Simulated assay, not measured.
Amino acid sequence: MPTTRSSTRPAAPEPTMQTAARAFLSSPSFAVAGASSNPAKYGHILFTWYLSHSLPVTPLNPSSPSITIPSHPQPKSHATVPSPSALPHPGQTALSIVTPPAVTSKVLKEARDAGVRAVWLQPGSFGEEELAYAEREWPGRAVGGFGEGTRGAEGWCLLVDGEAAMRGREKM
């Protein structure tokens, strides 16, 4: 009796947070939901992280038409967009979220509907529901939680884990 080959392939390995972080940072453009002019807020610190790495970034803030970032020789104003659907190219944009969990839930739904490419949920911006939703809607392109590989005690954070992920994105 002839033998037949099985057409089933072994299952692809489960994506890790490291691969999701590298995929996130391989995006052509970025946005920060919760961007702020206030240097004490994480939305400000996160936005300036992108600027300091010369990455194209758009601030999302529905309450202000712009945010101001100190720079030399004078502060620079950056026009905001009010929501993920207002991004110029959402399908090419990875969205960092640094908002309270109730707001994050709404931002995630808008981001999904707009076709945002990837999301990174910063520590404190989500609960179990928001993280599960992000992982379901952006398989392999959602970063957040306490998965293996983070160097921070607060979970996956762009400010802590972003450098390593940027070095690894060339492997993508």
Rank of each mutant, 00 (worst) to 15 (best):
L131N: 03
G127Q: 13
M172A: 12
W138M: 05
G168A: 12
S54V: 15
E137V: 08
V116W: 15
R169E: 02
A40L: 04
H53E: 04
V143M: 01
R136P: 11
L159I: 13
E129A: 09
R141N: 01
A134T: 02
N61C: 07
S29I: 15
L25T: 07
P82K: 14
S85W: 08
G147P: 02
E170T: 07
K76T: 15
I69A: 01
H72C: 11
P65W: 11
S54M: 12
V81L: 09
P28N: 11
H89C: 14
L158G: 01
Q74H: 14
A12Y: 05
R9H: 09
S105K: 15
H72M: 13
R151W: 03
A153E: 10
T58N: 03
R22Y: 04
A79H: 12
S29L: 11
K76S: 12
A142W: 04
A111M: 11
S7N: 12
K76W: 04
P65N: 05
P56T: 15
G147Y: 12
A134R: 15
H72Q: 08
D113A: 13
V57I: 09
P73W: 07
L25V: 10
P84H: 06
P75F: 10
I67G: 06
R167P: 00
H53A: 05
K171D: 08
M166A: 10
S27A: 09
G43P: 12
T4W: 14
E148Q: 08
N38V: 13
P123S: 02
G145S: 07
A11H: 13
E163I: 10
P100W: 06
S63A: 11
S36N: 10
F47W: 04
P139W: 01
M166K: 06
G144N: 03
A164T: 08
P123A: 03
V81R: 10
S29P: 04
E129C: 04
P28A: 14
L95C: 03
K76P: 00
L131A: 04
S83Y: 07
I69G: 02
H53F: 01
T58A: 06
V98Y: 10
T8C: 13
P39S: 05
S26D: 10
A31N: 04
T4H: 09
T4G: 01
F126S: 12
P100N: 07
S66V: 14
T99M: 13
H53N: 12
T19L: 07
P65I: 11
A94I: 13
E129T: 13
R112A: 04
T80V: 10
G34Q: 09
R9V: 15
T3K: 15
R151D: 12
P10A: 15
R151F: 08
L87F: 03
E135T: 09
A132P: 00
P28Y: 03
G155R: 15
L108N: 05
G155I: 13
E154Y: 13
S125H: 11
T93W: 03
G145E: 02
G168V: 09
E170W: 03
L131W: 09
I69M: 00
P70V: 08
G144F: 03
S96W: 02
W138S: 00
P59H: 01
H72L: 14
T19V: 07
P2S: 12
